[in-house]
Design a binder for these strands. Structure first.
Length: 582
DNA sequence: GGAAAGTAGT
């Protein structure tokens, strides 16, 4: 048994001699069709609701549990609602019934402070109202949301005491709670021990495995589901997509169609994202016609996905056509289009679209800036970069998104303002590995080799573990500083101490460093030891070294490789002619 | 009055 008996006792559960007082509600049918209550379902704001509330009081309905529970439900659950108002109404109710208690708990489970659902549940127990099978799904969802593993287990104890573990909804909620809290073994135990399994609880467990990246376990379960529904297919397809296994995701999608299960909008959202990331333009086009045939051309979730897919597959004009045709655009529409341009190195178009976005009074968010800042870096658009920095300072000051600040560091460094980059870096409260990397590379780029290397050791002091990108920065610092010995040391330390295998870029730095120092034999030996074929940049740096050291014959040999690899590259011909001239 | 999947970037 996973649940210790002591944990079950720490929350009170009262004997069920308490019971809810009978309400004085008039017949249900009369209430259900009452004009004040039909109005309630049409409310679109709290102001609407307060008017309806006044109606309810005037018509005397505020004495009925039915009307009050509807009122509470709107305030607690609707996106236009206001939980504090729900609580005010709740406090005015003499003997709230189970439904009303449950609705408040549900409201807390949806709020930003889901832990209050548990606190409210304790109040419910203390006031003598017994929880039922509706209470626990909300409660367990709260525990899943704020990773309250301990509370979740105690609540599981209550479920068992009340004998509600055979309720399908409670059962699935338990599995989901454990899965979301990362306790997959417990989720599995609940699932295995129950004779009650349906497609929903299968899917809850599958989603747990997917979130851990255990795709094989997930697939095994999926294959065991007696009757699969569209949600279970979607979960599995999106699982493959999330773990980068796009081909399997798309293969499963075609299996789904063969099984005659109709895809829904969510299916298409996932499939589009898999197409975008795997470059499957043909299937993406098919989804495009699926959307059109169903008249879903103004569904932003789908069309944004379609724009993203076209852009990532290189069909930028088609993407832009769809974007321009949109009647309504949300921030994601702008972001996918701007990001699409940047992704395909169409930086000028990205900048132009960003300017259009500002003129259209659309508000950019952090993702917009993550799409546009790399474009600023590549174009050296320092002024726009500065403007964005000021905008972020003004509107996103409290943002904990470290990648935003990292992007700013990178932008300043690449636009030549290393001092501003340092300022942003030093101003970051919580630095990430990426921000250290950006700063180290930035310093290296500007020839501040020793400062970069100092920062590298400071980074280690602060407990960050360097990755392959860190070493690209470190080696490039050595390269820019002509520090051959240090370069050799860092290169071998990377492999032996940090267990990072050398990539093309690392070899590129080293070969460039050795070549510039005239150590051609060592550079050649290193090249021969590479597992991968050297690219144009590697041959190019060697050719540059030949020019510096006037090595005509070697230069001809190197240039031959380069011409084969990059016949279009005019730089290679220029370098060779410079060698001859020298 | 209720449970499982589901957009943009790092």
């Amino acid at each position: 048994m996973v649940f210790s008996s002591s944990s079950l006792l720490s929350l009170p559960i009262l004997p069920s001699t308490f019971h809810v007082l009978p309400t004085s509600d008039p017949p249900y049918k009369l209430l259900q069709t009452h004009p004040s209550l039909t109005l309630l379902s049409k409310c679109k704001s709290m102001q609407n609701l307060k008017q309806v509330h006044a109606h309810i009081i005037k018509s005397g309905l505020h004495n009925t549990h039915f009307a009050l529970s509807k009122l509470v439900e709107f305030c607690a659950v609707s996106p236009f609602g206001d939980l504090s108002y729900a609580l005010l109404v709740f406090q005015s109710i003499e003997n709230p019934n189970q439904i009303i208690w449950n609705t408040i708990i549900r409201g807390f489970s949806l709020s930003s402070k889901p832990i209050q659902a548990v606190e409210f549940y304790v109040l419910m127990l203390l006031s003598g109202v017994e929880p039922n099978s509706y209470t626990f799904p909300f409660l367990l969802k709260s525990c899943a949301k704020f990773a309250a593993s301990h509370e979740g287990k105690q609540i599981h104890g209550h479920v068992l005491k009340l004998g509600l573990d055979s309720d399908a909804f409670v059962h699935t909620s338990l599995i989901n709670m454990y899965a979301q809290n990362g306790e997959l073994d417990n989720a599995r135990l609940v699932f295995d021990k129950s004779s009650f399994r349906d497609v929903v609880s299968f899917t809850a467990l599958i989603t747990g495995y997917v979130s851990r990246g255990c795709m094989d376990d997930a697939r095994h379960l999926f294959d065991e589901i007696p009757v699969r529904d569209v949600v279970s297919w979607n979960a599995m397809i999106s699982g493959y997509a999330q773990s980068g296994r796009f081909e399997e995701a798309l293969a499963l999608f075609s299996e789904m169609r063969k099984a005659n299960v109709s895809p829904n909008e969510s299916t298409m959202v996932v499939v589009l994202s898999a197409c975008a990331q795997s470059g499957s333009l043909e299937l993406g086009k098919w989804v495009g016609s699926w959307i059109e045939n169903r008249g879903l051309g103004s569904n932003l979730r789908l069309v944004n996905g379609l724009i993203d897919m076209y852009a990532k597959c290189g069909a930028l004009d088609t993407a832009r056509g769809l974007f321009d045709g949109l009647q309504q655009r949300d921030v994601i529409s702008w972001n996918v289009m701007i990001g699409g341009y940047t992704h395909k190195s169409h930086y000028k178009e990205a900048l132009a679209l960003f300017r259009l976005m500002l003129r259209s009074n659309a508000d950019p968010n952090d993702v917009t800036f993550l799409g546009i800042l790399p474009a600023c870096s590549h174009l050296g658009a320092l002024d726009l970069g500065k403007w964005i920095h000021a905008y972020i300072d003004k509107n996103f000051q409290s943002f904990t998104n470290t990648s935003l600040w990292t992007s700013l560091i990178d932008m300043y460094a690449k636009c030549g303002n290393i001092e501003a980059a340092k300022q942003v870096f030093n101003g970051m409260e919580a630095k990430s590995l990426a921000s250290w990397n950006a700063m180290i590379s930035g310093l290296a780029m500007h020839g501040h080799a020793h400062t970069a290397l100092e920062l590298f050791s400071k980074m280690a002091d602060e407990g960050f573990k360097p990755d392959e990108i860190t070493f690209v920065g470190v080696l490039s610092a050595c390269n820019h500083g002509g520090l051959v010995d240090l370069g050799r040391q860092y290169f071998s330390s990377m492999i032996t101490d940090y267990h990072i295998s050398a990539q093309l870029q690392h070899y590129g730095c080293m070969i460039d460093l050795l070549g510039r120092a005239g150590l051609f034999n060592e550079a050649e030996a290193l090249m021969n030891s590479m597992e991968m074929k050297p690219d144009g940049a590697v041959w190019g740096s060697l050719l540059g070294a030949c020019r510096i050291h006037r090595r005509v014959e070697l230069g001809e040999l190197v240039a031959k490789h380069l011409f084969e690899l990059e016949p279009e590259n005019a730089g290679a011909y220029v370098l060779l002619s410079n060698i001859y001239a020298g």
